[in-house]
Design a protein around this nucleic acid. Structure first.
Lengths: 152, 152
DNA sequence: CTTGACCTTCCAGTGCACTGGAAGCCTTAC
DNA sequence: GTAAGGCTTCCAGTGCACTGGAAGGTCAAG
């Protein structure tokens, strides 16, 4: 892959943008339809022509994703910016909510880890002769059914 | 919904099983097609006739799900039991792997939480006047792009 | 002039665990 | 006999973020 570097800073095509950012062309087009990346100009033949702001936008999308935001949330942030100038307050709320959700998820997961570790330990030390057909496998006891819903 | 309790322990229909276990009829049929619940006998009119083992199986499925196993893994455990008598070793390996994966996920998430908390704090204390259009929102800095892939 | 790398659109599939709805039969109570 | 509320099957949709592939257009080099 040897890219022509003709007049650096001018428009680039989707493949160049992909190579420059590490985001696949498929994904770039998908981001456009998903509304997180603005539709770029086109050449006369219909090729997408990106400028440097596209790379910035992609970097923002990836950074926001790295913070755990969904594309829908990212779209909200972007459109909030487009209409109200500064989405900072919106973003702050979003991030605070997100942090709280993460905290909850984290303690849930940590509980789950304890449970699985206990099961795992049990499974390695149990007597296979204790297997009862109706339990499928007694290493996973059915009596532990608390409301551990939506745990994954 | 008032269920006839006629001769408790005999066959029950899908709605009764659903009421008894708290798993919806839709989900029960889905479990059958997914291969984690054996196809039950049918009445002459085609209704599913379950016995008590179905409730045990459902309890097992929910317990295994609570331990974070996917339906595919549960199906593996069940079929391993069907062919090799005691799936304990299989289950032990599965659980150990799962515990390790959870551990990894947990530290990943905890890192993410730190990051989001930092962003959240930043977002509430930043000067909105610093907003630069090309960053969409400077509360989410694009320079933090590490290989924080598959973080959700 | 052809080759090949690139680009376009559109449709469909992935994985996971369901969930909703339509069309139509069965069973029970009144 | 009829109404209600089961039950049956099958198809399709949900949410999330892509990914694959087909069919065809464009462009520069050899």
């Amino acid at each position: 892959m040897h890219w022509k570097v003709k007049s650096y800073g001018a428009g680039m095509r989707i493949g160049e943008l992909a190579a420059a950012t590490g985001v696949s062309t498929k994904t770039i087009r998908f981001y456009e339809t998903a509304g997180v990346l603005p539709a770029p100009a086109r050449t006369t033949s219909g090729y997408r022509q990106y400028d440097a702001s596209a790379a910035d936008r992609l970097a923002f999308i990836r950074a926001a994703q790295a913070a755990g935001l969904t594309l829908a949330q990212i779209r909200d942030v972007i459109s909030a910016r487009d209409i109200s100038e500064a989405p900072c307050h919106h973003v702050a709320t979003l991030l605070a909510d997100h942090a709280a959700a993460l905290q909850a998820r984290l303690s849930q997961l940590s509980e789950l880890l304890e449970h699985v570790r206990w099961l795992s330990h049990r499974a390695t030390t149990l007597d296979p002769g204790q297997c009862l057909p109706q339990h499928v496998c007694h290493a996973i006891p059915t009596s532990q059914l608390t409301d551990r819903s939506s745990s994954r």
